[in-house]
Design a protein around this nucleic acid. Structure first.
Length: 607
DNA sequence: CTAGGGTTAG
């Protein structure tokens, strides 16, 4: 049925049925139904409006008849984006009932007009009309998206008063609403009370935990869900699970999830694919992530975002910039998060000029107001490159008050470049922000140690102790045979420590042939050279490598995650080990990855 | 007298 013919018919109808001389109820009824059937056959908004206009012209609006109700319903449920029109018809109904309210609210929610939906709901409450069990989930969805906890709780109150207290769909929507509003206890309480849980209930509770960053609990819940058996997780659940893997660096769990997806779902959607890419990249498998990215049919802004920040983490600055310009060529508009990726790519690869240009371009071309995070990247960029004065200037010029992250990155840059003067400025500001972060004191104290200012070292450490802060010990995690082992410096608590130290001894022999000599300059203890060398040997990363070399097969990569930056000596040492033992060694520190292969590191000694 | 519900990434 084409547009003209529906319109044509409505004109014919109008001609054929002039207002009757003696209108009868049945006659009107008939006309109503005829109008309705015409209106229902319309296939787009234009057509609908024209026919509607004809109907009004001939017979006036049947304002309180079921035609009007159906008009609202048709607009609300079609994909024509015609909610304004539906609202205007709705406003002409004198005494809207439950059906009109319900359809209008659901239409508004479907059209992402959440505020309006909640507004209509208030009107509904005032008139004493009850939403039905189909409308509560829509309202709760609106609250979830708007993070409108107060309204959400009001609706929950109404649901609570219902005799049946809402069905499973309403329960699931409540779990989700509280999750999105970061009220995880309420979410869990409702989840635990729900006896007939559906996949949606599990999805909702898992994503609730994901949205407050309880990643470990996410995986636990997922395990529980699988053990309960009857529910096969669906894509959306697994996206939350993958996100948890990403944040925990749980590569094995992530791989299993990928396998599960491949076995059970024929075509993965863009969200799952993007989550997979992010997981692989942030768990250290850049190549795998890049491979999946290249297979995307139509990458969107988020896909680009994850791959750009992934390349950044791996120190591949130029590639990140290339992908970024590819993204612009595709006509995708970058947002602030994409720019954080771009700027950190420049920072990790030491691309100072490129970074400056991007920062300018972000403001002038894309109209993005730089956030603290962007300034943080810029300070980092300048600082790493040794432009400490310029970095300090930038911090002073910032329109918003610099936070601890900004000062901290300036401080650590000062440590790398041994600039005690600016370092002290950064430290002073950092400590003024009443930092509870022990590592701030440690960095400062180490800087004093480097400058042989032992009095200041002592002073800083006393200050730290006075505040009851303890130095966070550095550790390295390594996964062997699906089990993660943790090593701290000089660790002798591992059941195999004797073997491990024997291995260290052998490694040192080989290293000496390659011309390795220990770099003790960063052992910041007031002890003699021999003692320093002894200390270096027992750094946690070396223990982890030794352990992995003993227990993994020739040629398989070694993955290590550590909580602190690695020292220069560990860096040189690991490069040599990678060539001597022909192993790829991937180390993740707090911020980025180092790929050691054939005697070089992906960071090109810039980190 | 009608229509029809939850969840997914950087």
């Amino acid at each position: 049925m084409t547009g003209t013919s529906v319109l044509h018919q409505s004109l014919l109808l109008a001609k054929k049925q002039d207002p009757p001389e003696h209108p009868q109820v049945n006659n009107i009824r008939l006309k109503e139904e005829e109008c309705l059937s015409l209106l229902k056959r319309c296939s787009n908004m234009e057509e609908f409006k024209q026919v509607h206009a004809q109907v009004i012209k001939c017979w006036g609006l049947f304002s309180n008849s079921f035609v009007a109700s159906n008009l609202v319903a048709t607009c609300a449920l079609s994909d024509w984006g015609s909610m304004d029109y539906a609202c205007s018809i709705f406003r002409q109904i004198d005494d809207p009932g439950a059906f009109e309210f319900n359809t209008l609210i659901r239409g508004l929610v479907k059209d992402i007009k959440f505020e309006e939906a909640l507004f209509i709901y208030q009107e509904m409450v005032e008139r004493g009309v009850e939403p039905d069990n189909f409308t509560y989930p829509a309202l709760l969805k609106a609250c979830a998206r708007l993070r409108a906890l107060e309204e959400g709780m009001q609706i929950h109150g109404h649901v609570f008063k219902l005799e049946f207290q809402g069905d499973l769909f309403v329960q699931n929507a409540l779990i989700n609403m509280y999750g999105k509003c970061e009220e995880i206890e309420f979410s869990s309480a409702i989840f635990n009370r729900t006896d007939q849980k559906s996949v949606a209930s599990w999805s909702a509770i898992i994503s609730a935990h994901a949205s407050v960053g309880l990643w470990y609990e996410c995986l636990m819940l997922f395990g529980e869900m699988s053990r309960e058996g009857c529910w096969r997780p669906e894509e959306s659940t697994l996206v939350s699970v993958l996100s948890a893997c990403t944040h925990l660096g749980a590569l094995d769990f992530g791989r299993c999830t990928h396998g599960y997806l491949l076995r059970n779902i024929s075509e993965l959607n863009i969200i799952v694919q993007t989550s997979l890419i992010d997981m692989y990249v942030k768990c250290g498998c850049l190549a795998k992530g890049l491979g999946l990215f290249q297979m995307l049919a139509k990458p969107n802004r988020l896909s680009y975002s994850v791959i750009i920040s992934g390349l950044a983490m791996h120190g591949r600055g130029y590639e990140a910039l290339r992908v970024f310009s590819e993204m612009l060529r595709q006509g995708l508009e970058p947002d602030d998060v994409v720019y954080v990726g771009v700027l950190s790519a420049c920072s990790h690869a030491g691309l100072v000029n490129e970074g400056r240009q991007c920062f300018e371009r972000m403001i002038s071309e894309h109209g993005i107001v730089p956030t603290l995070e962007h300034y943080g990247c810029m300070v980092d960029l300048m600082g790493r490159a040794g432009l400490l004065g310029e970095a300090l200037e930038l911090v002073k010029r910032m329109p918003t008050e610099p936070n601890d992250v900004v000062w901290r990155s300036l401080l650590s840059a000062c440590k790398v470049h041994q600039d005690l003067e600016i370092g002290e400025v950064a430290a002073k500001n950092l400590l003024q922000l009443s930092s509870q972060n022990p590592s701030d004191y440690v960095v400062l104290s180490n800087m004093y140690a480097q400058a042989q200012r032992w009095d200041d070292v002592a002073r800083t450490q006393i200050e730290m102790a006075r505040k009851g802060l303890k130095q966070t010990p550095g550790f390295s995690l390594v996964e062997v045979a699906r089990k993660v082992s943790k090593f701290v410096t000089q660790d002798r608590s591992h059941p195999e420590w004797v073997n491990i130290y024997e291995m260290i001894h052998q490694m040192e022999w080989q290293l000496k042939f390659e011309g390795y000599s220990p770099d003790t300059s960063q052992v910041l203890l007031d002890v003699n050279e021999d003692e320093k060398r002894e200390r270096l040997k027992g750094h946690s990363q070396k223990l982890a490598i030794a352990f992995a070399l003993i227990h993994t097969s020739q040629g398989s990569p070694i993955r290590i995650a550590r909580n602190l930056r690695m020292c220069n000596d560990c860096h040189t040492y690991t490069k040599l080990i990678s060539v001597i033992y022909q192993r790829e060694i991937i180390v993740r520190d707090r911020k980025r990855f180092h790929h050691f292969k054939d005697g070089t590191c992906s960071c090109r000694d810039y980190w």
